[in-house]
Write a protein that binds this DNA or RNA. Structure first.
Lengths: 344, 344
DNA sequence: CGCGGTCATGATAGCGCTACCTTAGTGCAA
DNA sequence: TTGCACTAAGGTAGCGCTATCATGACCGCG
């Protein structure tokens, strides 16, 4: 008996449910969002009507009317990079059982794309926003500051986040890995890096500092490329590094893909690992612990970061006690065969 | 001078732009969605007003009014599985420069979760829906049939899709890999599989048929687990398989992670690959071509599948000529060192 | 010079939901 | 009994945008 609305979508609306249950639309709305606001009797009638009609709320109408979408927007620079996939797993885990949805945006490592996505996502008035890194453009930062929702920067550590932050220090990670190589007795320690996004740059800076402290730094030891990282690329970069520095006796790889490629290439050239070449990766994917030889790496809290970031958003939404705005989850150097030069 | 709307969000609306540009709201709407409908002069005024106010359209209001969201929903069972990450890369690539957004849903390999997500996404009236696989629940299939938007099932091949389909045959892939192992001279060929989702099951079926044809099938050769796949797991499953069948002389691995784990474990046990143990993976990640020894695998069109699926949706939306509803992108057996038993 | 046809623009009325305010009913102290 | 606080439910008016129809200007043509 509705107004034959020429435009209506054919799908049952909250009004249809209300009519069937013999209540007002607003009561249905309340029953769906917070059942405690509605008497048990009506609640049951409404639930029955919802089931009978197969009613599904229109999220767009809901978001428009309440100017609040039940969505947490998550911006990552890449989805093929397992680091961010693991991070997103943590996000999903923390959100399980929660009616909030996840909206993933892929910036492809482009600040401009990031700016566009932040503008677009904030236009949807999400319940929370999680962005990767701390190197947003000025325009993006301005938008984040006036986001009107909790904002978490992740996968880095810094003292002055836009709002909240959870991650670890890539600089310290790079430094720790490199110091370990120095202590293991290596002297011509190369750096192999791909893509060289801001996080890679900070790992490189940590590497550099550690080598300078030991009086071992030499620019010729650093081989980088803007190309995205991959296992084959690790082998290629090792060849380049050895061409530049034949005496190379160890490499700190920007990530585990490269480290694995380095290992394969070393095996191909019959270079003995760890005796003639030490290899250290970054992230500590689970394959590092079972490679042959087992590969040293820096374990990073990817999953935990996603999990914690969501928890921080949720706590803020629930108006709970303010916890620390900056959380450093740290990292852990996993020393394995590939850098145990003096092992039996 | 607006009605002091106590509820308005504070953000500029299309009405604000219209007032500043001295036109009606509907004209702004037209200028934004299809500039050719508006005279050059007004268009310029409107663009100026948009820029001055920093106007950003409200996607919820737009979706509500037009009952059509500018979104393509993509459902995958996992994001950490590189196969689906590559697939999504293809989706992004095909959508570059297009105003359509991507909405990713993660089913975690659960038909129930898939059902929930399909219902939710369709409630947003997306412009298209891409779902992984062909093993949806009855309820999900019903919803897909009445989706009201183009639907593409991906990563499998079948004759009767809900709407459109693009992928390849996992059964044929498994068969081809196994036949190759037989032809290479292996006789006790094991199957190692993790997770055992429907696609894995079909690869296993292909393996079984190939071995039966050769008179070599033996249930004791098959080792599977519901556990998610990983590199370490590959090594563990190899150990299990060798315990069950000491004479094992080759393994077809359900995917490349397992194959890599098998290789590492073989190296650890000093089992010579490919002479004493042949290894064949599935998917052909780029590391397979550089491992030492190089690993044989079945190359699958992951990126291409994502790309093509989006193209199919777009073509349908543009009302273009109907192309094939089922597209088989095939696969390619990449024979490498790890199965070249009789190589010099 | 008036007629139908095209084109650019505008006015109006929703899309489906919820914020906000009002109304009716209940219990209880004065 | 009156008055007041409190709860459950409903009425109304938007949220910001677009579908649809209406309007008026302009055009060519018999």
């Amino acid at each position: 008996m509705k107004k034959t609305g020429r435009r209506n979508s054919g799908r049952p609306t909250i009004t249809d449910v209300a009519r069937l249950a013999g209540v007002a639309a607003i009561t249905v709305s309340r029953a769906l969002r917070d059942p405690s606001l509605v008497s048990v009797e009506l609640r049951r009638q409404i639930e029955a009507a919802v089931a009978e009609l197969g009613y599904e709320p229109n999220v767009n109408a809901r978001a428009l009317a309440s100017s609040r979408a039940d969505v947490i927007a998550v911006l990552v620079p890449s989805l093929t990079n397992i680091v961010f996939a693991d991070f997103i797993s943590g996000v999903y885990k923390a959100l399980r059982g929660n009616p909030l949805q996840i909206q993933i945006g892929n910036t492809h490592y482009s600040p401009r794309e990031e700016e566009r996505l932040v503008a677009m996502f904030l236009g949807q008035r999400p319940s929370g926003l999680i962005v990767s890194g701390i190197d947003q453009s000025k325009a993006t930062l301005k938008r984040l500051q006036t986001a009107g929702c909790p904002v978490v920067q992740v996968m880095e550590y810094a003292d002055e986040p836009v709002d909240m932050l959870v991650g670890f220090s890539h600089f310290e990670g790079g430094k720790a890995a490199t110091r370990h190589l120095v202590e293991a007795g290596y002297r011509r320690i190369g750096f192999i890096g791909a893509r060289m996004d801001p996080r890679s740059q900070r790992r490189l800076a940590g590497y550099r500092l550690a080598l300078e402290e030991a009086g071992l730094f030499d620019p010729a030891l650093v081989v980088t490329t803007p190309t995205p990282s991959s296992v084959p690329l690790g082998g290629e970069l090792l060849c380049q590094a050895m061409a530049k520095t034949p005496a190379l006796d160890a490499v700190f790889c920007n990530n585990d893909d490269l480290a694995l490629g380095v290992l394969f290439e070393a095996q191909r050239q019959a270079i003995r690992v760890p005796q003639a070449l030490g290899i250290c990766g970054f992230n500590d994917l689970d394959l590092m612990g079972v490679a042959h030889p087992r590969l040293t790496s820096v374990r990073t809290p990817r999953f935990e970061t996603g999990h914690r970031a969501v928890q921080m958003v949720l706590r803020r939404l629930q108006g709970g006690a303010e916890e620390a705005r900056c959380v450093d989850l740290g990292f852990q150097l996993q020393v394995r065969d590939s850098t145990m030069r003096d092992a039996p």
